[in-house]
């Protein structure tokens, strides 16, 4: 079934009969209004319910577009699923939702049954809901006006049958738009947000903006992830030979081959250490760096994320490290601050 936003709105889960209709039948508008507020109340209740069924909810944000937010969000979900946890992935980017592609769910449509939305099952059993499931055609992004878009987000939050989850990862469009605010205000107990950045100065500048934004959202910042950090190349030469490479920016990189002549060196495509610096500046944790890996681009294209195709590869290992740093932060922030309430 293909759904347009208006169709989704009209597909309200409950039909209500109001008492006393016989003598003083409410006008059509009144009835509509009552029905709407009834639905809103139902949604509020199901959101509260969801707050309990989903243990940890993590928002993935970036200041700038194209830094790899969706790749990272998908990677985090897969990496957590690899550990045997129950994971959901919510893709709220309406203008360029690319999560379905990476999850092998290209062309999937929204599954609505009895007024509830059922997530799709992606790689490793990750439950996925994407704004793309609403689009008639992925290549023509819809321009929804603000209220419709935000209404759809609220519906996405309230009407999805996630079941019990250990983690829900939420991917956003880039920048400091309305979407994170809507989610932060509608979803109770958000564990926190992670900020994805690349090491370039511009991206870092934008990350500063998003950290300031994070503060205004009143959601904890779990930390900063540096994506596309370094690119590691491997080579073969004479055993124990010293290798000299001319890296980006005229920097010389040295490596030494091992006994069998194998060597590797990491090139910093962009400036190194930017993520660490910004997390120091803002006094938030640094969650780790993810390497530049052309396999991510391929994976995005052929529908198999790097973590699935190479679960033991360097990128998957880097993701596992970031995930363990996130878990530490989540545990820290959910441990009660030793407050006695009487």
């Amino acid at each position: 079934m293909t759904l347009s936003p208006s169709r989704l709105m009209a597909d309200s889960p409950v039909k209500v009969n109001f008492p006393g209709q016989a003598d003083s039948a409410p006008s059509v508008e009144d009835q509509k209004r009552m029905e709407q507020s009834y639905n809103q109340m139902k949604r509020k209740m199901s959101i509260a319910q969801m707050g309990k069924a989903i243990k940890h909810k993590i928002m993935v944000l970036s200041g700038k577009g194209g830094v790899g937010k969706s790749t990272v969000a998908t990677g985090l979900a897969l990496s957590l699923a690899q550990e045997g946890l129950k994971v959901g992935l919510l893709d709220i980017d309406i203008t360029g939702p690319n999560v379905p592609k990476m999850m092998g769910l290209d062309g999937h449509r929204l599954d609505v049954m009895d007024g509830r939305i059922h997530p799709a099952k992606g790689h490793l059993g990750v439950k996925v809901i994407s704004m793309a499931f609403l689009l008639e055609d992925e290549d023509t992004p819809v321009i929804w006006r603000g209220p419709i878009k935000l209404g759809a987000i609220q519906q996405f939050i309230g009407d999805v049958e996630w079941g019990n989850l250990d983690y829900l990862i939420i991917d956003f469009p880039p920048g400091t738009s309305d979407e994170p605010l809507t989610v932060a205000q509608s979803l109770p107990d958000i564990s926190g947000m992670v900020i994805v950045t690349t090491p370039q100065d511009v991206a870092l500048l934008d990350s500063r903006k998003s950290l300031t934004f994070a503060k205004s959202l009143k959601v904890d910042v779990l930390g900063v992830i540096e994506n596309m950090s370094g690119y590691t190349i491997h080579g073969k030469s004479m055993p124990n030979e010293d290798i000299e490479l001319f890296g980006p920016g005229g920097k010389t990189i040295n490596a030494t081959a091992d006994d069998s002549g194998l060597w590797s060196a990491t090139l910093d495509i962009f400036k190194a250490g930017g993520g660490k610096k910004i997390s120091d500046d803002f006094n938030v944790p640094f969650l780790g760096a993810l390497p530049f890996d052309p396999g991510f681009v391929r994976g995005g294209d052929d529908g198999v994320h790097r973590i699935v195709s190479e679960p033991e590869g360097a990128s998957a290992l880097a993701f596992a490290d970031v995930v363990s740093a996130i878990k530490d932060q989540v545990e820290k922030s959910s441990s009660s601050p030793g407050l006695e309430i009487i």
Binding site: D189, K218, S333, P337, L339
Partner: peptide, 9 residues
């Protein structure tokens, strides 16, 4: 009813 929100609120 008072509830803690994370460790900050």
């Amino acid at each position: 009813t008072v509830r803690t929100i994370g460790n900050y609120a």
